[in-house]
């Protein structure tokens, strides 16, 4: 057993980190929030060049996946750098199309996903909204035992995270891609993949919030000393780190096993840890953290949004309880 990223995996993560750090993702995210998707699409293409989307696509469709471990590691970086767009949805949509008995839709879409030329939306189950439907090339939605591809959507609604834009895909004008019980099974697989990578993204968001906050309390002086020397501040940050550090192995474990209980545990833990990091970050930045203008807000609001996306804490806990053998 070697339950650590391989040297190759660690290199891949470092490459993504360096690329994203240099890409000015906060500006891209702010433009995306304003409905300007050009910068985001260019970033998306660069991520594809680095091999990100190919990880979600099987070799038969020009990818080298599915590789859930590499995807999970990569999505931590996407979260750390606040990359905008329907990232989890595109990856999950690829899993969905690949799981259909009829290869037609996969042949049409997956090579484009692998190359970073297609952004796919995926509507939340049970008539839910889709993230970034206005930016996506199509939105998959499951209605009963039918899988639909919607090209149109209702009005764009704001998320608590301004960078996430929500809309209801239009079912009445959507094309039917597949029908039958296989759709239900494929949708469940896709939802698990979305849950896994959303957990990873949340962990990355939490890590970014902690890192920025530690930097802040080291620099910020009050009463003549760095505020980070006060025990109340230290202990809050220590607890934030503990929650993140024990969420990480759950994420890695879920990526390795793919077991439902592990995926749910990872999402519950990463979502909670990231949100806790957001509360810590806001509190320790003081009023500065409460402003939209300061970049911290990009991660603060995303932590809240990702906590609910693709598996609320309550749903995840229920699944852990139901699916852990006793």
């Amino acid at each position: 057993m070697r339950f650590l990223p391989t040297a190759e995996q660690a290199d891949f993560v470092r490459t993504l980190d360096r690329m994203l750090a240099a890409a000015g993702t906060p500006e891209t995210a702010r433009a995306w929030a304003a409905g300007e998707h050009g910068g985001g699409r260019r970033l998306w293409a660069r991520l594809a060049d680095a091999g990100l989307f190919a990880l979600a696509v099987p070799e038969a469709y020009d990818g080298f996946g599915p590789r859930p471990v590499e995807l999970a590691l990569a999505f931590v970086e996407l979260g750390r750098h606040a990359v905008p767009g329907p990232l989890a949805e595109t990856v999950a949509a690829a899993a969905l199309l690949d799981a259909l008995p009829d290869p037609g839709p996969a042949e049409e879409w997956l090579p484009r996903v692998a190359a970073g030329r297609a952004l796919l939306g995926l509507a939340a189950p049970e008539g839910g909204r889709a993230l970034d439907a206005d930016a996506a090339d199509g939105v998959l939605l499951v209605s009963g035992e039918r899988l639909l591809l919607a090209r149109e959507h209702g009005p764009v609604e704001a998320s608590l995270d301004p960078v996430r834009r929500l809309a209801l895909p239009r079912e009445d004008t959507a094309a039917v891609l597949a029908t039958g019980p296989a759709v239900t099974a494929a949708a469940a697989r896709a939802a698990d993949r979305a849950t896994l990578v959303t957990a990873a993204q949340a962990l990355g968001v939490g890590l970014a919030l902690l890192a920025r906050t530690v930097e802040h309390v080291r620099r910020r002086h009050q009463f003549g000393v760095p505020v980070g020397s006060f025990q109340a501040v230290k202990h809050r940050l220590a607890d934030t780190l503990i929650a993140l550090e024990f969420a990480r192995p759950l994420l890695h474990g879920a990526a390795v096993t793919g077991a439902g209980a592990d995926v749910a545990a990872a999402k519950a833990a990463c979502g909670e840890a990231a949100y806790r990091a957001a509360r810590t970050a806001l509190q320790l930045h003081g009023a500065l953290g409460y402003t939209a203008e300061y970049d911290l807000s990009l991660w603060l609001t995303k932590a809240r949004a990702l906590r609910s996306a693709w598996g609320t804490p309550a749903r995840c806990r229920a699944r852990v309880l139901a699916e852990t053998p006793v």
């Binding site: 339950f3 550090e245 024990f246 890695h252 474990g253 592990d262 519950a268 995840c316 229920a318 852990t324």
Partner: peptide, 26 residues
Amino acid sequence: ADRVADALIGARAYQLAAYAGAARAA
């Protein structure tokens, strides 16, 4: 139920963290 689930999640997290630590130590 949520607290029972949290115990399962916490125990699994500790177990997996220890496996990672063992790999690092090895």
